[in-house]
Design a protein around this nucleic acid. Structure first.
Lengths: 197, 197
DNA sequence: TCATTTAATGAACAATCGTTCAAAAGCAAA
DNA sequence: TTTGCTTTTGAACGATTGTTCATTAAATGA
């Protein structure tokens, strides 16, 4: 047993992700407050008590989902601080739409369940969201200072663009009338015009 | 008693509105599922049982709030089908921002609590929302056909504009850095550019 | 003052909530 | 097979949920 390579009778690495997946699905469908731990357990195919091997409590389950989502969002945000502001903005629009379209449940939760976080957890998620907004605002500012964007208030335009892009999730469905490519094209068209590029 | 002008020992006309106001405030703050009838009663200063003089159940309380909000939204939407599309669109942007900024709690509930409606109530609210969207799309279409707007897909632009405008509610606070007039000016600037007017 | 009507109380209901924990079951190494 | 550890069960806990209802209180009209 010199190395104890793996735990013994462990299903943790199987059940753990399934618990998070079930919580994600049910929270998105019914809302955090309306989903019981027993409902999550039933979705996994397990008794409620077993969930507490994978989360200290219900609140942590919500926070972990939101935190993982925001972290992934920030990690995958294209950097490209070398490119010109217009290309950076295009890249941002493209990324935002595709990233969010791929994760409707995560996005839904991240926007709808903020008020069900404890004060401390809320502050942590808000900090991540702020970081993401700041990234877009930096792009806008550099475009303004180099004269390629015509924007009065970068903060407002930042929030307006993000609201507009995130709104795609309320109606877009894969296999619908429009492909994701077409959606990206049209939203980039609107954003481009709105910033006067 | 020939007319029975009013009910007798009635406080209905006082307590009734207070119940709706309390529900509005608490639903917006904590979410429908997380707010108990006892909490609403406490906000009114009454026992839980008394609420049932004013609503058949909790679900109706939510639906009535959302329904009243959407109806008022539609009633107050500027008509002006005589004006040119550009003026109509400007008027719509102005109205939307001001109407929503005046009613943060109602707007919050109307967007966040849709999933807590029964299937039937959900369909009714969705129909009202659709009506509102159609009104904007009509403006866009008339502008496209008269050549003053340059828009590829009126449906997408409709949803994008509404998402962008409604997003104001997530950050705007009266008495903050920007006045509502300034907000309207800047959003109209973006919308105008985005539709190529 | 008295009779009538309405509004509010406060207890009670069955159900469900998040969470805990001793006991049972499952699995891997010895 | 036995030993040791992990995972799951299933019952139990106190609290809280939406809702009902007989009773009490309050207010009005006569």
């Amino acid at each position: 047993m010199k190395h104890m390579a793996r735990t013994q009778g462990s299903h943790s690495d199987i059940t753990g992700p399934r618990v998070r997946a079930a919580a994600l699905k049910l929270f998105a469908r019914g809302g955090y407050a309306a989903v019981s731990m027993r409902a999550i357990a039933a979705e996994v195919g397990v008794q409620a008590g077993a969930l507490y091997n994978y989360t200290p409590d219900k609140q942590s389950l919500l926070f972990d989902l939101m935190s993982a989502h925001m972290t992934e969002l920030l990690d995958q945000t294209p950097d490209g601080s070398d490119a010109d502001p217009r290309a950076q903005l295009h890249s941002f629009v493209d990324f935002h739409i595709r990233f969010h379209a791929d994760r409707p449940d995560e996005v839904f939760i991240a926007y709808m369940e903020l008020r069900n976080l404890t004060e401390e957890n809320f502050a942590r998620i808000e900090a991540l969201r702020r970081q993401y907004e700041d990234h877009l605002e930096d792009i806008l500012r550099s475009g303004v200072s180099s004269g390629v964007f015509n924007v009065r208030d970068t903060k407002i335009v930042t929030l307006a663009i993000i609201a507009m892009l995130t709104g795609v999730n309320t109606w877009f469905r894969a296999g619908g009338r429009l492909s994701l490519d077409e959606v990206v094209t049209q939203y980039w068209d609107m954003v481009r015009k709105a910033v006067g590029a």
